[in-house]
Amino acid sequence: MREKPKVVILACQQALPDPEPLLQALEAAGLTARAVPEPCSSKIEAFHLLRILAVEADCVRVLACPEDACLLKEGSCRLGRRLKHAQEYLQEIGLEPERLEVTRLNPGEAVDLPRLAADLAGVALTLGLNPGRRRVQEKEPQK
């Protein structure tokens, strides 16, 4: 059976408190999806993004608040810089930086889930499987 691209969503709880409907929409679009709730996008480090790509994901999407609406003031802004740093690593490797992206959602406002899911699915299906990702037959690295 052909492997479905996997998307991991890192969702700021202010931007998207319940990512479950989004996961369902992504799976309906032909993807495998997992969500990691985050108290704020500022908690996401560059190494988290790269590790997720190396270990399990074909694409990672951070759902964060707009920079001027972050609960922790600078959190969303810092996330943007860290994401850029991680994207630079991908460029050095020769992977598409679009595999790591952020979508800004206004906290407290209704999210257009079909549109968000279509955008995510479009990117993931266009990019396809991540050639740098660990495949099932590969053993776990030792820490």
């Binding site: 190494f47 590790r51 790509l53 190396a54 050095e92």
Partner: peptide
């Protein structure tokens, strides 16, 4: 240790893309 984790993940991906299996410890 953060930069170790970043570099290790990047090297893991780069080696797979080059068709090599590298076991990386941190």
């Amino acid at each position: 240790r953060r930069e170790v984790a970043e570099l290790s993940a990047a090297l893991m991906m780069a080696s797979r893309m080059a068709g090599r299996q590298v076991e990386i410890r941190e």
